[in-house]
């Protein structure tokens, strides 16, 4: 993306008089075969068709459907949907539980992403330059394992690891004389315990992104930095950051979106409890839809969340783009 754009003459302009002109001047030879298809914008658009078909059928239609449902009162098994206008949306504003879950999710998201990014960047840096390390491939494979284990399975197993009477953590704590801690049923601990598992699971992803970002730094620039005797801070500031930031920030974005949606960890480990200490919006929504079967209201909530997420991402990408085109 940031590779030097080999600027070609604007032969690929989609349409307009210029396009036809350059078509004539530049391609005298290929007149015999499929000449019209070469530069026609319609050929380009047709290449997008399969992806767009999938996108419309499985993303646009369900989303429009969801928006529509938001205006209905529709509880599965309780008769037909009934149009209620914007009632669902006004209900959202006064839904204390939901906004509690929302702010809890934000705290979770900021802590999880903050820890994962700093830890991931630190470890990524640590691994940078270890290409001659014996068994490096195996070490990285083992380190990436947490992110490919099925979350549903790791969530369950962490429950066992955290278990007060026969979990391994409390067993080890007991050996150094610490009283058992009910990590998942103690309101003081549950949030941190879930956060810890999320960090364990997704820090490897940020390590991966950091390594990729570092890999996109041209070795020539690093050598120049060495000749100029830049210190570590200057190297990060002037050589690494300008090259690697796009990838790194994309990693942060993906993690942020996913942390905001955290559902399966909570579902397997705490089911939102104890009390509501780990009730996050993703899971609250899941409960509304599938336990209460409250499809209209949950669709309205989903729409509000989607708008928040899109607004956040647009601002984020906008800022990222600004700094990228520097």
């Amino acid at each position: 993306m940031t590779t030097t754009p080999i600027s070609t003459s604007d032969t690929e302009l989609p349409a307009g008089p210029g396009a036809t002109a350059s078509n004539k001047t530049k391609s005298p030879k290929k007149s015999k075969s499929s000449a019209s298809g070469h530069r026609s914008p319609w050929f380009g658009r047709s290449l997008l068709a399969p992806v767009l078909a999938f996108f419309i059928a499985l993303n646009v239609i369900p989303t429009v459907w969801m928006i529509g449902l938001g205006f209905y009162k529709y509880t599965l098994n309780l008769g037909d949907p009934r149009y209620v206008g914007t009632d669902n949306f006004t209900d959202i504003f006064t839904d204390q539980e939901l906004w509690g879950a929302f702010s809890r999710t934000l705290i979770f998201m900021v802590s999880a992403v903050g820890i994962e990014v700093s830890l991931g960047a630190a470890i990524g840096f640590l691994f940078w330059g270890s290409s001659k390390m014996p068994g490096r491939r195996l070490a990285l494979t083992l380190m990436f394992a947490p992110m490919v284990m099925a979350p549903i399975a790791s969530g369950q197993f962490w429950k066992l690891i955290y278990e007060p009477s026969f979990g391994v953590i409390n067993d080890l704590l007991g050996k150094v004389g610490v009283d058992p801690i009910s990590f998942l049923t103690d309101p003081d601990w549950a949030f941190r315990a879930v956060l810890f598992v999320d960090v364990w699971m997704w820090t490897p992803f940020m390590i991966l992104m950091t390594l990729a970002a570092l890999g996109s730094v041209p070795s020539a620039e690093l050598e120049a930095a060495e000749i100029d005797r830049l210190n570590s801070f200057e190297r990060i500031r002037y050589v690494i950051w300008p090259n690697g930031k796009f990838i790194l920030m994309l990693g942060v974005l993906l993690r942020t979106i996913d942390a905001f949606k955290t559902t399966d960890l909570v579902q397997t480990m705490t089911e939102g409890g104890p009390g509501d200490s780990t009730e996050f919006v993703g899971f609250a929504l899941f409960r509304q839809a599938f336990n209460s079967l409250n499809l209209g209201y949950s669709s309205a909530v989903a729409l509000v969340l989607l708008i928040i997420a899109i607004a956040f991402t647009s601002i984020y990408l906008y800022v990222l783009n600004l700094s990228r085109s520097k």
Binding site: F55, I61, P62, A289, L305
Partner: peptide, 23 residues
């Protein structure tokens, strides 16, 4: 369009499931 494609990732899964189930 590229942004729109990425935005599918932002829909909370539980929300996408409801219309998907009906569809």
């Amino acid at each position: 369009l590229m942004f729109l494609l990425l935005s599918t990732r932002m829909v909370p899964a539980a929300a996408a499931i409801v219309p998907m189930l009906l569809m």
